[in-house]
Design a protein around this nucleic acid. Structure first.
Lengths: 195, 195, 195, 195
DNA sequence: GATGAATGAGGATTCATTCAT
DNA sequence: TATGAATGAATCCTCATTCAT
């Protein structure tokens, strides 16, 4: 039992270090030796926990994706719709501000989809799920006269693209005021109607 | 003279091919042999035109940046400011829709700034120049009551981030209707006031 | 006492599995992990019974050699010599037909004598002992006019080479009729004189 | 043209060295670095000529096989059949005495057929061709009353096994008298009838 | 200039051996 | 004794760069 715990703890440390390296240097320029050293484990130990470098990368991409799904796909619907959207925006910006390292790894996959087809598909599926989850809220808001009438799919796409772009363009630490400031800008994409 | 022309044409072909490879596989996973083959030139010829792989990458990043500067930094000011902004948006979206390959290379530099510090600085300087160029227009629009009062630097940042995000999230061909559709969404970031 | 028995049984199982692996893949391409798995024991246990991989190989080569010596060096002399030889041939072919796995391991040592000098010496010594044991019988047969006059050492060498060659060239199961059929061919090497 | 010649000469040198190493240490225990050093070429150059270690091994096994086929499958039929057989034996023993290194590599493939299935099939096909080529001669000899009546396939098999066994059991240099002495022993396998 | 063979440093992966539990 | 995680040396292979033709 104790064993198992130690094992998991060590695995997590390697994975976290590797994620940082992948984010900083990309897949190809990250070496296992570098990950091992930064993790404080021996070279061979990395292979004890992750059979290949590809496996390590897969885990770095897919495991945090589960948490991201929980944050982005579980929507707490409230009235009115515009309030729901504002809460979402706050939650989303908080998440991306805190997970910059992971998101840079994910961008690597998106930018070089040809190199990581199966990982790309996973991320693309998430993208689609997110759009499908967000659209009904947008539609509700438009019906309620809170948002301008625009293709909800387009709005969802634009919003997600905006989040991606903000994250990529700003390697800032989580504490930066930027993330709070961006909330109002993000909200504009939904076409709020001033009453 | 004829010689010179042939020389330039060959160089351009190599650079274009290399840009495509860098965009698809990143810097580290692109090999000179691959570029040579795809360019239809001999292996050794790549080194005749570009002394090192780094040089080739630098050229792939910096040369198109000049064209990008012309498009993004030369602003044709018109009245009213909101019209200027709309023209800019059209021009910008057109550019990014047509230069997807180059922009993926640039994203590579941004995402892995630690690997390419001098290139990153060039792109970052462009980012700053762009913001400095755009801000006066935004300020004018706000003064004219066309845009809501918001930190103009924040708006410029949000807008550029949006462009980056849309480009990264959509590997679509230039012909997609997405690029036209996004114009209205982009415009919303400026906080247009309906009159 | 019971303990000891279990110990020996486990050791024997590991050694048998290892012999099969060494025969199939050679020394270098056989891994301890593979032997452990195929033996149904834990990885570490292999080292409990055999301190190194070399030791395991040595045991796989030398322990069955004792049995082989009993079969090949204990000659039951009968009259006439040609009958003795025929009985030997039968016994030898039976042995090699039943010990194909072991003999492939031994061939490994012979073929790569530079890698296993001490093991090679053991096998070579056996070779010599065998020749020395066989020669008197051949000489007797020649004196009795049953075999043509030929250098007895040459005949013994040819006969042992024949046994080795038949075994190497035929991975057949023990039940194959080949082994019986070869008896008459083996006998010819002794130069029997038809009366 | 000169280029091509140099190229072939270098390739041949690497292949010859590699064959010696494979014969001495087997496939797994032979390192590319060792082959490179012994060949007097750089490590990387080995890969210029042979893309992988497996390819190098394949070439070491298959290329000399062509010469072996010429020697073993082209039979110069003469009268009487027993004379043909004696000439064959002389030719064969000469070949194996001179190609000990190659034959040890081939034995490696035979002994570990599971590791090299496609190479094993090539050698096995040769084995079969050889038997099919030899059988008619044996049958002729038996019809002419020169050889005892025995299954010709069995005789051919026994003879080839004998050649293999003699070669494996004797790492002697070509000049050894053994090879000449063995001719009469080999001939006995055909069951010559003294007249 | 054009070509492609030569070089060797660098990196992923394997695996015998050790050792803590 | 039994187990299997930890270690790092060893090895195959890649590829940027050099250079002779």
């Amino acid at each position: 039992m104790q064993q198992k715990f130690v094992h998991q703890e060590k695995r997590a440390r390697i994975l976290q270090t590797a994620t940082q390296c992948f984010a900083d240097h990309g897949f190809a320029a990250t070496t296992i030796a570098e990950v091992a050293k930064a993790s404080g484990v021996s070279f061979g130990s990395v292979f004890t926990y992750f059979s290949t470098k590809d496996t390590l990368f897969r885990c770095a991409v897919l495991e945090p994706l589960e948490e991201m799904k929980r944050v982005f796909l579980d929507i707490d619907v409230q009235a009115p719709p515009s309030l729901t959207v504002q809460h979402l925006i706050t939650k989303h910006l908080k998440f991306i501000s805190e997970h910059g390292v992971y998101l840079r790894v994910a961008q690597h996959v998106i930018a070089q989809s040809a190199l990581f087809p199966s990982l790309f598909n996973e991320l693309d599926a998430f993208h689609l799920q997110f759009k499908n989850t967000l659209q009904p809220i947008i539609t509700d808001g438009q019906c309620a006269g809170e948002f301008e009438a625009t293709d909800p799919g387009l709005v969802a796409t634009a919003y997600l693209s905006f989040l991606i772009g903000v994250r990529l363009a700003h390697p800032d630490a989580p504490g930066s005021p930027l993330w709070d400031d961006m909330r109002v800008l993000a909200f504009r994409l939904f076409g709020p109607i001033v009453q």
